[in-house]
Design a protein around this nucleic acid. Sequence first.
DNA 1: GTATCAAACTGATATTTGTCATAAATTTAG
DNA 2: CTAAATTTATGACAAATATCAGTTTGATAC
Lengths: 235, 235
Amino acid sequence: MPTPTHPSDCAHCPHLSHSHLNNLSTESLDDVSKNRTCIVFKKGQTIYHEGMRVNGIYCIHGGIAKLFKLGPKGKEQIIKFAQPGELAGYRAMISNDPMSGSLVAHTEVRACFIPKDVFLASLRENPTFSFELLAASCHELGEWGKIVTNLSQKSVRERLAELILLLQATFGTDDEGSIDISLTREELANMVGTATESLIRLLSELKKEGAISTSGKRICITNMNLLTRISELAH
Amino acid sequence: MPTPTHPSDCAHCPHLSHSHLNNLSTESLDDVSKNRTCIVFKKGQTIYHEGMRVNGIYCIHGGIAKLFKLGPKGKEQIIKFAQPGELAGYRAMISNDPMSGSLVAHTEVRACFIPKDVFLASLRENPTFSFELLAASCHELGEWGKIVTNLSQKSVRERLAELILLLQATFGTDDEGSIDISLTREELANMVGTATESLIRLLSELKKEGAISTSGKRICITNMNLLTRISELAH
DNA sequence: GTATCAAACTGATATTTGTCATAAATTTAG
DNA sequence: CTAAATTTATGACAAATATCAGTTTGATAC
């Protein structure tokens, strides 16, 4: 069972500045703040399941959550990892569809649940917020086109190189220069869209070539130029 | 050079009822109507190029337009075919990005160009319209997740079967029962994400198995159940 | 109608990727 | 700390898909 926490209000949330909620009026933000429920999810716990109808959205303010879909043969396809400041579940809410994927706590996750009616009211009353979400969705739609083109046209090797670059850009590096997210080989495979064994082989290929180094789950880019070249060009 | 035409106003457009523009107030629709320019594009003409910044959007009211992106090695990835009633180019406009793909007239296309400021004003002044676009974008985002999962996890054969089903659902059938859109094998390959030769081979495989029949560019589904089964399950 | 060009098809072969089996290493539970 | 479970890794092989070369067919222009 997730346990509620006792956070201060949204206006003082350190993640507000890079959240879409930053576009809400003082009153709306206050409304959200008063009606939210803060929940802690332990690593591995499901926040919501694909296919569910949820009567609210989640605002992540701690930890990393994994969003994935199940493929036709039951294999997990990782769509993205959501970080603090991000809203999760609003798309399905707005388009009135069931959740298109499952959200699971990848690390311990702290998130605020915002009830549907509060969220929809804030959309109605804040044209800036609503336009911001529209603009963000439109931008994302463009990104999906790129993703699909890459999936269709690049080799697994190229996609893997690209993924590693993307992970570093998204999660940054720790003090030792390793990419600051811990993923199993299977999860990497489920992002790139390949079999785990293939991913392992390609990863050690990149290692042999000197583009990256690994130790356990830590991945460190040792030759960014090389990796960039591998990610874009034909083998 | 595209030639302007002299259409009646948007309020009387036969495609209005299934267009997002149907959510505009009478005044806004009138504003759009007065400021649009109707253009005819001959088959093969480019409506806009990927990477361009366009200062308006297109409302298609005749013909079919092909939207595609170029992959890293210059190969075309078809994103979708747009039909009458659809708006094209509004995503890039709203997110203020360059066009994420190119739009080309697949048949002769008649389209109205709506200037950026008129479109953005109508968004600002019509919360229903703007929410409708948001909802549609959110729905589409969910669809992209499915597309990516399929691309990652299904074989080319399965994706081809699925594409044929999708094409029939989208474009319907002519009097002879064939799917009502004419595509080259290369275009089919560029939708599925495979080489043209592979596509040809898989197509004749489906033919041999009795799932479809073809004559020239006409494709006819002869065994919908079989094709559905092929599209979903492992080989 | 014939020449020309693009599209459709076929075969041979290379490459990539997946699958299965199994072993080694690492993590987790108790 | 030890046992069990999971993750990582490797080899051998099968299947899927791409590539290249060439032929056939069909459409288009003159």
